[in-house]
Amino acid sequence: MAESLMPLIVALLRWTDARARIDPLSGEVETDPRGAGPSEADRCALEHALRIAEAAGGRCAAVTLAPEPAEEMLRDALACGADAVLRVDVPSWDSRVPDSGATTARALAHAIRTELGEPSLVLTGDHSADRGTGSTPAFLAAELGCAQALGLVELSYADGELLALRRLDRGRRERLAVPLPAVCSVEPAGVRLRRAALPSTLAARRAEIPVVAGAVAAEPVTAHAARPFRPRAKELPPPPEADPRLRLLRLTGAHEHREPPRVVVTDDPAEAADELLEYLRGKGYL
């Protein structure tokens, strides 16, 4: 942990309609702003942010890039205990940037820095519920020039240290000591957003929500052709074993001996590239 004092913990909340309906004929996505809100993962991110801010004696701010109806979501964040909120404005639902996450991250990083200050920790859901790729947190880490730890299932702050647990394939977990400043994305697990008290809920109903213009240069997306995704069929013969248990073991790959993952920690990009190349050569890819 680079510093024990954490002045600003930001929870990034994506305003999304988890029950969006897709027209089976046109492919058009029908959304309803009334039922929209943060995803479960974003709600967990807010709870983590509130807990870490309390533990570290810092400020917690909730930020979103969304149109005006999303202010209800920010009011809920205020009611739950966020010290500040910020809405980065986009005129409508559709005008949210359908990009790789880079443009969104740029707009958010700019708004956070100019309106709230340099963040010590930014927390967000691992990916949005609507077509999310989960790439925005990574782009945001690059924008802010800080560390990233993505797809976390546990996050705790104690004795000035931020510890995280990350889900890996095949049921394994990875423990991380996350240096600050950092961007962390969390899965919807482990914590549940607290229920706001009535007095703070009433206060939040009357609160002014700060809004800044979204400095987003949306890159227009043009679809030249659209066709259904039909991956080529791949033949997978069943395991030869007669015993169902053995077939199951074969299919799941349980109990197979595997080489444990080698964790490489290096700040030198050239060294990291060499490691990667060596690994690929060792596996016969190069």
Partner: peptide, 9 residues
């Protein structure tokens, strides 16, 4: 009384 903490109104 409401179902919120400190929920009396």
């Amino acid at each position: 009384r409401t179902d919120r903490p400190d929920g009396d109104l």
